[in-house]
Simulated scan of single mutants.
Amino acid sequence: MQTQFKNSFYEVQKFRQAWIWILMISLGLMTIGLFGYGCYKQIILGEKFGNHPMTDTGLMIAFALVVVVISFLFFLLVFAKLTTQIDNRGINYKFYPFHHRFHSIGWDVVDHCNVVAYQPVKEFGGWGFRYFKNKRAYNVAGDKGLQLILKNGKKLLIGTQKGSELSSFLNQIRK
């Protein structure tokens, strides 16, 4: 009986954690509601809003900016995704909308790689795209990732929700 091996690893991850959505929607609605109430009170009712009120124009501009920023952040969460493709040539990753094409790392520049458990908040300050001097991380959720140490000394961590599958795949292509 012949054993059939997979010749590539593929994963797409999105921000789907309930706590992120609850936090985003709650803060967004509270902020928009507060500025909306301020506009209503000051512009419609003619009562000053706050101890040091803005001008009506300033309040409308602030309200519009709040709506634009919160809409942008919501859009970012909806459409952001981390795509990872690994094969015998190397690692390809794309963190849309920050990357519009894949970034490739050939195996010839990788000194060491391993699937690791890590602490996203403690080690990287959270999830998303994180960049430090010689250390980068792309992670969307969880606490598992592909840790790459490149021959130039730089480190890259690419998060994964398929740690066991990725580890098995790496063992398979190293043979």
Rank of each mutant, 00 (worst) to 15 (best):
I158P: 04
K133S: 13
G38W: 12
K48D: 14
H103K: 15
K41F: 06
M24S: 14
R130Q: 11
D108K: 13
F79M: 04
K144D: 08
I105R: 00
R16N: 12
C39Q: 04
V78S: 03
F35S: 15
G36E: 05
Y118Q: 02
N88Q: 11
N51E: 12
L166C: 09
N171I: 10
A117M: 10
Q13P: 08
V109T: 13
R16K: 14
F35W: 13
F129E: 03
L166P: 11
V140S: 08
S167A: 14
I158C: 05
T3D: 11
F124G: 02
M60T: 11
E123P: 01
I158E: 02
R130L: 03
Y10T: 02
L59C: 05
G50E: 14
G90H: 07
Y138F: 15
V116L: 03
F132E: 12
I43C: 10
G142K: 05
N88G: 01
Q172C: 09
V140K: 05
S167C: 05
V78F: 10
F74D: 02
D87V: 09
Q13S: 13
L82M: 06
A18F: 11
N51T: 02
I70F: 13
N51P: 08
K133Y: 03
I149N: 12
V140W: 09
T83K: 08
